[in-house]
């Protein structure tokens, strides 16, 4: 075991990335989920390209929302169950930074791959090519907010045995603004309009979430640890 060299949050991020790397197969699960759910829509709606292209921005965004949500449940759980979260919380380094590091790793491991894969699945739904840059960039910014807001839900439910369904009740209403502006950016681009305003708003959401979400997460983690 190596002696920690840098600040605690860097070490935590390094450890979490290493853990994710050791379980590479798990990282594919959100991507497979996105692929399967997107493949269900043509089966439900019908294979007409016009109909699918019309709903593609919303479908891809809602699917990304669900994939991000399902992967948040485990964000703090393993560390909570084996007691290392308690050690982290007791250490002198601020829990704010540690929580932010853990959520950043979550984004790198699940949000970023989902965003990178989104043009591919949108292509399956006949989203026009000019809308692809808007989809990719809005996903890159939007999934940051999704990981951070999802982190709040994961931290609140970390002490509960059955967190999963409850987590979605807590978090999905909070995802509404990201969904609205994310799919609107893609819609605008598909209609040939400017989509920089929507992207700017998504960037604003991400900054707000980076600033405030770790506060809520560290408070929620401490509440569950004290229980």
């Amino acid at each position: 075991m190596s002696i920690p060299m840098g600040p605690a949050w860097i070490e935590i991020a390094r450890r979490d990335l290493l853990l994710a790397y050791r379980r590479r197969a798990e990282a594919a699960n959100p991507l497979i989920f996105v692929l399967i759910v997107v493949a269900l829509f043509p089966l439900g709606i019908g294979p007409t390209p016009q109909a699918l292209a019309r709903v593609a921005p919303g479908v891809v965004w809602v699917t990304a929302l669900l994939a991000s949500l399902l992967s948040t449940d485990m964000m703090f759980r393993a560390d909570f169950d084996d007691g290392s979260l308690e050690q982290i919380a007791r250490s002198p380094s601020p829990l704010y930074a540690t929580a932010l590091a853990k959520m950043a790793v979550h984004w790198l491991v699940s949000g970023l791959p989902i965003a990178l894969m989104s043009p591919l699945v949108a292509g399956l739904l006949y989203l026009p090519a000019p809308a692809m840059p808007a989809l990719l960039l809005s996903m890159l910014l939007g999934t940051v907010s999704l990981s951070l807001v999802g982190g709040i839900g994961a931290a609140l439910t970390v002490g509960l045995r059955k967190g999963g369904l409850l987590l979605s009740l807590l978090v999905l209403p909070l995802y509404v603004p990201v969904l609205v502006f994310g799919s609107a950016a893609v819609d605008s681009a598909a209609a040939g309009l400017s989509w920089s305003a929507e992207l700017a708003v998504l960037g604003g959401f991400a900054l707000l979430a980076i600033t405030l979400a770790p506060l809520a997460v560290s408070a929620a983690l401490r509440i569950n640890l004290d229980a």
């Binding site: 439910t157 002490g159 059955k162 009740l169 807590l170 509440i223 004290d226 229980a227």
Partner: peptide, 11 residues
């Protein structure tokens, strides 16, 4: 729903 999920009222 969150309130009902916890055993302890304080938490």
């Amino acid at each position: 729903a969150l309130y009902e999920a916890f055993e302890s009222r304080e938490t």
